[in-house]
Design a protein around this nucleic acid. Sequence first.
DNA 1: ACTCTTCGTAAGCATACACTTACCGTAAGT
DNA 2: ACTTACGGTAAGTGTATGCTTACGAAGAGT
Lengths: 122, 122
Amino acid sequence: MTYGKNLATDQSALPPSQVFAALADDTRRDIFEALRTGPKTVTTIAHGRPISRPAVSQHLKVLADAGLVTATPKGTSRLYAVDPKGLAPLRAYLDSVWGDVLGAFAAEVHKQIDPSDKEPKP
Amino acid sequence: MTYGKNLATDQSALPPSQVFAALADDTRRDIFEALRTGPKTVTTIAHGRPISRPAVSQHLKVLADAGLVTATPKGTSRLYAVDPKGLAPLRAYLDSVWGDVLGAFAAEVHKQIDPSDKEPKP
DNA sequence: ACTCTTCGTAAGCATACACTTACCGTAAGT
DNA sequence: ACTTACGGTAAGTGTATGCTTACGAAGAGT
């Protein structure tokens, strides 16, 4: 059972600076992970957490700006949920780096075995 | 058709806070990506970049502390290279989140079709 | 209309962070 | 030994950021 791939809208190429910055903060990633199991409201998230409700709102705004989270108004409440489409570019980016790194690593190993190879311009 | 078997986090363990923080900064991610094609020295990286050499050193230290980069002394120089092992936990983490999110998304869709389902405690 | 709940935003503040210049250790060449 | 090149670290500074309290806007129930 493979997830992703076509479900993920891989219009990647995005430089995910905002995504990384959004997930860099511990509290914010904690909030983000709290949404993994399903949508939640702001007050629900703030409940049981050592920060105030406005702080949660601000964190959710950052996550939303990064495309990691969506908000759907539900009466006077707003349901926040993780947006799979926001996670996809990050996965694509990591896969891209992964490929290059493995290639570079293999090239380095090969160079140690066969030093006749030249440096690709240092 | 049950989606989320172990919907509650498969103890993939690693909290990659340092990794995200390391890749959050634009300059630092630029440096990190410069190492994708192969190992480079500090001065090489600093060359052609708008920041000073010590700044590059500090960025490389952050990347190294995050486990994303390794340094191998080469004479009076030090060759920095991307560490594939540092990237792996990040991929694992994203895959874990990905699974939960898709499960939650599917559960949400299912709940809209069959509202007899209960909320998992908001 | 009034009230309550929910949430976003403004203002302010303390800390963290990215960058600079200056300095010191270390390996190689002469 | 002396010099040169490379690079890590200390000290200092301006800006970003995560948090708080206070206030305002908007839907739902009485």
